[in-house]
Design a protein around this nucleic acid. Structure first.
Length: 357
DNA sequence: TACGTGACGGTTGAG
DNA sequence: AACTCAACCGTCACG
């Protein structure tokens, strides 16, 4: 169970096919980019393919999240009993109605919203399979699900799509230190909101958990573990720890998650998916079940704003700059680069992983 | 050379 | 419990 088999890419970096890069590296990518370092340099430094760097940065710019999307699972069904029921009603009241008209009506009537309205083809399928001959409308439905009530509850169970929806688990806030969740605005790339903003954050926090790191040596190698290890965000870290911190950070993260959170807004992550989830305490905060969420709802994007810590992001970023640059760093990107690499030993990415290479 | 993008082979997890 | 399927992942190669 515990082996981790990583592969080595052309740059010499280690990765696990099919799995996301460790958050530490993702984070580092963003940090470096924020410092003005070119993607190609980041790629070389971290030994991550430029395509990946590009993708991560693009995602970050778009969503404000450094986290990967939720892997696995299924999208919640949009054809809930309630929807089917409505479709049937529309069809009954107007047998000649077209699927696209039904779709429009579902939206107009508020039965669905743009995020969960079934596609025209789905509606057609429903008409064909579930509703079929109107003369016997309930052919399937009645038998199986025609309980309006259940419908309701069903929807409750899958509140996925609404940007404002809270996570079903409702845990979102629980542990969060005052994190107002973002859920709402959204430029959601996907339709369902992130339910675990907090949990994500928490999860991340987990990454700070040393244990997560899996012992640098013991290295357990699940990617998940390695990623997490660094919890580092310079946030405070930057403060004084910046340098060493990060480096060590990789190994022993002691940084407060707060910063991280700024990079990690609401991302969708299934608990298990979260690199750090395993770790300690955080685990407890992680919502038990995860539903679909958008991965990055923008939240804390630098521009956007999710207030986790109002300043977080800025702080993280800005601060970063300040701290780094001001503090002891050179100002030119180049120098920064050097500095960074020296400082963090950027190899951190590799450090953890590099162990393998 | 830098970088965006799509194909590809892989993992994950809800249903 | 095993399987399916659709989502995501990072790498690689191409332009």
């Amino acid at each position: 169970m515990e082996q981790t088999y990583g592969e080595v890419n052309q740059l010499g970096g280690v990765f696990v096919n099919g799995r996301p890069l460790p958050n530490a590296i993702r984070l580092r990518i963003v940090e470096l980019a924020q410092l003005g370092i070119r993607p190609c340099d980041i790629s070389r430094q971290l030994r991550v393919s430029h395509g990946c760097v590009s993708k991560i940065l693009a995602r970050y710019n778009e969503t404000g999240s450094i986290l990967p999307g939720a892997i696995g699972g299924s999208k919640p069904r949009v054809t809930t009993p309630n929807v089917v029921k409505n479709i049937r009603e529309y069809k009954q009241s107007d047998p000649g109605i077209f699927a696209w008209e039904i779709r429009d009506r579902l939206l107009a009537d508020g039965v669905c919203d743009k995020y969960n309205v079934p596609s025209v083809s789905s509606i057609s399928r429903i008409l064909r399979n579930k509703i079929g001959n109107l003369s016997q409308p309930n052919q399937y439905e009645s038998g199986k699900q025609a309980h309006p009530q259940s419908t309701l509850s069903y929807n409750h169970i899958y509140p996925y799509s609404y940007p404002n929806a809270m996570s079903p688990s409702g845990t979102k806030m629980s542990g969060a230190p005052g994190v107002p969740v973002p859920g709402a605005h959204v430029s959601i790339p996907r339709g369902w909101p992130s339910a675990h903003t907090v949990s994500n954050i928490l999860g991340i926090r987990a990454f700070m958990d040393p244990s997560a790191i899996a012992g640098a040596e013991g290295y357990a190698p699940k990617m998940e573990e390695w990623g997490v290890s660094r919890g580092t965000f310079p946030s405070h870290g930057v403060n004084g720890m910046d340098k060493s911190a990060i480096e060590t950070d990789m190994k022993y993260s002691h940084q407060p998650p707060s910063t991280l959170s700024s990079y990690v807004p609401a991302c969708a992550y299934s608990p298990s998916n979260q690199y750090g989830v395993y770790g300690g305490p955080a685990g407890g905060y992680v919502a038990p079940g995860h539903h679909w969420q958008t991965q990055g709802t923008s939240l804390s994007h630098p521009g956007g704003g999710v207030p986790m810590h109002p300043t977080d992001l800025h702080s993280s970023m800005a601060f970063k700059h300040a701290a780094r640059d001001g503090d002891r760093k050179p100002q030119s990107p180049l120098s920064k680069l050097e500095a960074l690499s020296g400082i963090h030993g950027i190899s951190l990415s590799c450090s953890s992983s590099s162990s393998s290479s």
